[in-house]
Simulated assay, not measured.
Amino acid sequence: MVKIKDIELGDFPLLLAPMEDVSDPPFRAVCKAGGADLMYTEFVSSEGLIRDAAKSRQKLDIFEYERPIGIQLFGSDIETMAECAKIATAVSPDLIDINYGCPVKQVACRGAGAALLQDIPKMVAMTEAVVKATHLPVTVKTRLGWDDSTKNIEDVAERLQDIGIQALTVHGRTRVQMYKGEADWTLIGRIKENSRIRIPIFGNGDITTPEKALEYRNRYGVDGIMIGRASIGYPWIFNEIKHFLKTGTYLTHPTIADRVAVCRQHLEFSIRWKGEKLGVLEMRRHYASYFKGMDGAKSFRNRLVQADTFAEVEEILQEISATYSLEASY
């Protein structure tokens, strides 16, 4: 049984990665139904929380059915991060996560996210301040290092464990790599081989199929896997991996009707959470993923991203169901 402090996650948990502009409550709802064992919010700006910015505050919205759920924070100032850990703790998540992995320029150039990989003493001091600011378990998500010459994650893992984090997720790329090239899990495996490491170690990067999940579990010995981009438009991936790990067989892939149904559920939750206008608008980023790979679906996707109301989207979804069920009957 893998545990983060007292949070039981099963024998080999699958985590939903915190993805900006993706991992909001509507998306998390369909991923939870799809088998995610632990989920995180989009990363929340510590500066935004201190300013009481509406967007940052809204990212603290969590729901009972999501548990266990973690709130992920990022920032560059130690005192601000500690204060924000207190603010996040007040909304009663199950844990607090610190982002030391985001590679995007507007985050790293402000000294946050992956920028802390260039200043390990500050990373350790910031983590310790957050640990002391909350009674909740604190976890960390980071990368192998800033670049190929600073792959210091083995040392970082020990130092962060020693000041109190309860789990570590490592993305198998450096900051310089961004999301390019193949993720290298070799150092993640070495952390697991370290007899000093007692906390769960989760691997992240390039897990797109059940076969790869099994291969990486066996090869690198991680306690669980975090899945990000592969879940966008395909929340079924969690249960597909679980089934394959347990039985060695494949679940039936979702039908067009399944895709339409889950897309509709996602949209309905988005509207309940943000109202029809914004809920419909923010779903536009997901349609291409839900209907990716379907022959002749481009025209439907184009219409979906132009629809402004639930009624318009619903009409198009019904057309998709009718069109593809008719083709399947031939």
Results as ranks from 00 to 15, higher is better:
residue 238 F to W: 11
residue 274 K to H: 07
residue 157 A to Y: 10
residue 234 Y to H: 15
residue 245 L to I: 06
residue 262 V to D: 05
residue 117 L to E: 11
residue 133 A to R: 06
residue 96 I to Q: 04
residue 23 S to Q: 01
residue 270 S to W: 05
residue 38 L to A: 01
residue 86 K to C: 07
residue 76 S to D: 11
residue 137 P to T: 11
residue 207 I to V: 15
residue 109 C to T: 11
residue 43 F to Q: 00
residue 201 I to S: 07
residue 148 D to L: 13
residue 276 E to H: 11
residue 85 A to C: 12
residue 242 K to I: 00
residue 81 M to Q: 09
residue 90 A to I: 05
residue 315 E to H: 14
residue 80 T to Y: 10
residue 104 V to F: 09
residue 12 F to H: 08
residue 247 T to K: 08
residue 178 M to Y: 12
residue 290 Y to L: 01
residue 185 W to G: 00
residue 303 R to H: 13
residue 317 L to N: 07
residue 120 I to T: 13
residue 52 D to Y: 00
residue 134 T to E: 07
residue 232 I to C: 09
residue 132 K to F: 05
residue 156 V to H: 11
residue 195 S to V: 09
residue 89 T to Y: 05
residue 90 A to T: 05
residue 86 K to A: 15
residue 199 I to F: 10
residue 176 V to N: 08
residue 187 L to C: 04
residue 17 A to K: 05
residue 269 F to V: 15
residue 25 P to M: 02
residue 34 G to F: 02
residue 251 L to N: 01
residue 2 V to W: 03
residue 129 A to E: 09
residue 63 F to E: 14
residue 190 R to K: 15
residue 326 L to N: 12
residue 239 N to C: 03
residue 65 Y to E: 14
residue 63 F to H: 13
residue 149 S to H: 15
residue 229 R to V: 11
residue 258 D to S: 05
residue 10 G to P: 11
residue 56 S to A: 08
residue 18 P to A: 01
residue 209 T to R: 00
residue 324 Y to I: 08
residue 187 L to E: 08
residue 85 A to R: 07
residue 105 K to P: 06
residue 264 R to K: 15
residue 3 K to R: 14
residue 19 M to I: 05
residue 117 L to C: 10
residue 109 C to Y: 13
residue 306 Q to K: 15
residue 241 I to T: 02
residue 205 G to T: 00
residue 252 T to W: 00
residue 8 E to R: 10
residue 262 V to R: 13
residue 168 L to V: 06
residue 181 G to S: 07
residue 180 K to E: 14
residue 297 A to L: 02
residue 142 T to I: 09
residue 249 T to Y: 10
residue 282 E to G: 01
residue 226 M to E: 04
residue 160 L to F: 13
residue 299 S to K: 13
residue 204 N to W: 08
residue 238 F to M: 04
residue 68 P to G: 06
residue 32 K to I: 00
residue 251 L to G: 06
residue 82 A to T: 11
residue 105 K to R: 15
residue 24 D to P: 00
residue 308 D to F: 08
residue 88 A to S: 09
residue 100 Y to W: 11
residue 24 D to R: 01
residue 176 V to A: 13
residue 205 G to D: 00
residue 210 P to Y: 01
residue 326 L to T: 14
residue 224 G to P: 10
residue 5 K to E: 06
residue 98 I to L: 15
residue 201 I to T: 07
residue 330 Y to E: 12
